[in-house]
């Protein structure tokens, strides 16, 4: 009997947490579906309308949100692609050969993960204006390496390290070159890892705020900064803000559902495997 009571209490506590976790999203949905004239007069009873989404996606407020969305897409994809091309060989090398250079690189990359972003951004703010990289895709892809490269290298190293080197050695003795052994044996076997790390890196790049805030103004600005700009101005446009916020969380949420299994290793930089 007492055990049963505890069970109920535990379930109730869990439920409470999930209400806490889900309510803000639900409330955003409600807010975004409200017509402008009912914004302040009601809480839960209103006539739902998609006006807010139409306004946000129609650029009616002078905020080119669709463009920001595309920018986010381009910049995040670009950052992930560059990190993969550069990071996969490095991850492989440092998993297979422990040598001074790679340990230094790995440590430097990890320290990026914990360095205050502004340490790099403020100098870049000055530098980019000189180099003409301010408010450009290239500039954003470069600086986003700070987010995506450590992730790719660290996580992929843990995947490569889990792969016994004897498989590639067998390939070498089968008559393949080292390059072929990498592409035909090692790479296909870590494909789940590559998929997971790409998605995770994409999500983090997409969710980044401080880089585009400081290093872009209009041309290359992304959704995270764009969504916040709906809160600016004289007249508060809460329903538009809610709609913009919801639109901007859709891509990362959809991707997140597909990588659930690999999330633990990704979030802990390979420190915890499940």
């Amino acid at each position: 009997m007492r055990k049963r009571l505890w069970g109920w209490l535990a379930d109730a506590a869990l439920l409470l947490y999930f209400v806490f976790a889900l309510f803000p999203v639900a409330w955003m949905l409600i807010l975004s579906l409200k017509p402008a004239d009912q914004l302040f007069s009601t809480y839960f009873s209103f006539t739902p309308t998609l006006d807010a989404y139409r306004t946000v996606l129609g650029d009616d407020e002078g905020i080119p949100f669709v463009r920001f969305f595309v920018n986010s897409l381009v910049v995040s994809l670009g950052a992930v692609a560059l990190s993969l091309v550069v990071g996969l060989p490095a991850a492989y090398a440092s998993a297979r050969w422990r040598f001074k250079g790679s340990e230094h690189l790995m440590f430097t990359l990890l320290s990026f993960r914990f360095a205050p972003e502004l340490t790099v951004i403020i100098p870049l703010f000055v530098l980019y204006q000189k180099l003409g990289l301010f408010d450009t895709y290239a500039g954003m892809v470069w600086v986003l390496q700070l987010v995506t490269l450590p992730l790719v290298v660290w996580i992929m190293r843990s995947y490569f390290a889990d792969l016994t080197p004897e498989l590639e050695q067998a390939a070498l003795l089968d008559g393949y070159t080292r390059r072929q052994a990498f592409f035909k044996v090692a790479l296909p076997l870590v494909r789940p890892g590559i998929a997971a790390v790409s998605l995770l890196a994409f999500i983090f790049a997409w969710n980044n705020f401080v880089f585009p805030l400081i290093l872009t103004s209009h041309e290359a600005q992304t959704v995270t900064v764009g969504a916040l700009s709906f809160l600016g101005g004289d007249r508060p446009k809460y329903h538009l803000t809610a709609a913009a916020a919801l639109i901007s969380v859709v891509p990362p949420l959809l991707l997140a559902l597909t990588i659930q299994r690999y999330l633990v290793r990704g979030l802990s930089f390979g420190a915890v495997k499940s």
Partner: peptide, 16 residues
């Protein structure tokens, strides 16, 4: 779910 939402967006939600 909350973890995949950009912190800045989360802050906007809570601000509202």
């Amino acid at each position: 779910l909350p973890l995949m939402i950009a912190p800045v967006i989360a802050a906007i939600m809570w601000k509202l």
